[in-house]
Design a protein around this nucleic acid. Structure first.
Lengths: 213, 213
DNA sequence: TAGATTGTTAATCGATTAACAATC
DNA sequence: TAGATTGTTAATCGATTAACAATC
């Protein structure tokens, strides 16, 4: 699929953004778009758009531009959004609930197949499509069901022990809301961290140093 | 405060991470640390640590290294974490609730002073330290109380109209959980976006293309 | 003093932008 | 054909890393 196997993480992290803007264009029934116009909408350079897309192949046509729906489909394939990776939710507190209720996992490449909690009050509750189970059942559930990834929505102090169990079960892809440094301990994992507090501190910096840039 | 007013956004986004690791070192009663050791813990180069810190001034001492507590304090000041910027929460749904309950705003440079909702069932509820109010009261509240920032935890379709009101009230700093492109419309704002779905798509890409790197 | 480690300059590496020939 | 716009190469810019003199 790819022309070049060494694609920068910077390019990859821009792909979802392209995908978002293309989805919007499609909703507005825009059929074709030039790198120039797309760059303008996204507030980047046309050069960057063309370079980024050409990491994966030539999806455009000289003199015409790009077909919105085709390009969207190509990026979807590059991201692998069609895989429907089976994921479990660890922790059905406020964050776990928010994530499970508001994200459309099907569109994001995943399928949420179960949720686990230590709080017995929540056992049996349903959250979107999933049922909340006793975390003690983690091993039996994962043995019976194929699970590709875990969404870690538990406080930091609870992550470590659960993570060890998940890792032992062969689950090595994590979406991590805690500050626990997974890759430091397990180096053969795939981890995306959501550091909300880092993000908020950055906002604080920018508010404090407004005008300087 | 700064030696150089043109500090790269890449450096700035690393500051919260330094702050986090320094906080941990302090908790473990580590008094001093060398750029080499810190780099090792954080999985970056010692050069980068020294270059980053030197954007803001010389906080170390040759032959000794850096004082953990002093360096942490310096970074806190650079980020402006002592400001206690007054913020309001827009939307007390699952995400708003999760954010309000689980983040320690005081430590992140903010003080949450109120919350707003359109769902009348939630009026009067308390969430951590704040009371949920009718969004109709936004103007009166913000006129009576000084508000520096808004945390936007409402679905995309509701952001636009509320944003216009906030902007008219002079609130121009936003923590945005929606996909609405604030800076495109209002260019004198400070915006930090939390794009959870972008993050999850990146995880999907990395799972799909595992082994290639 | 000798050893350690910074602050800083210089070298390298990578990412972005500009330019333009290829081509629809 | 003429105009538009890509794919791609070359030029520029910026970030990271290496090296080392300064100094605690």
């Amino acid at each position: 699929m790819s022309k070049n196997d060494n694609i920068s993480m910077l390019v990859i992290r821009r792909l979802p953004r392209y995908y978002r803007f293309l989805s919007e264009l499609e909703e507005q029934h825009t059929e074709r778009i030039s790198s120039n116009k797309l760059a303008q909408i996204m507030n980047v350079t046309a050069s960057q758009v063309r370079q980024d897309l050409n990491c994966f192949g030539g999806f455009g046509q000289q003199g015409y531009g790009y077909s919105v729906s085709q390009l969207k489909e190509e990026i979807s394939n590059i991201l692998g959004l069609n895989h429907g990776y089976k994921a479990i939710l660890i922790g059905a507190g406020n964050f776990g609930t928010a994530v499970a209720k508001h994200l459309d996992f099907k569109k994001l490449g995943f399928e949420l197949v179960g949720g686990f909690e230590i709080d017995r009050e929540k056992f049996g509750e349903t959250l979107g499509d999933i049922v909340i189970r006793d975390e003690a059942e983690l091993e039996s559930f994962c043995t019976e069901n194929h699970v590709d990834a875990a969404f870690l929505c538990v406080p930091r102090q609870n992550v470590e022990s659960t993570l060890e169990r998940l890792y032992r079960l062969g689950i090595k892809c994590y979406w991590n809301f805690s500050h626990y440094d997974i890759s430091a301990k397990y180096n053969d994992t795939v981890v995306e961290n959501v550091h909300l507090s880092d993000n908020l501190m950055t906002l604080c910096y920018r508010m404090t140093n407004r005008g300087e840039q």
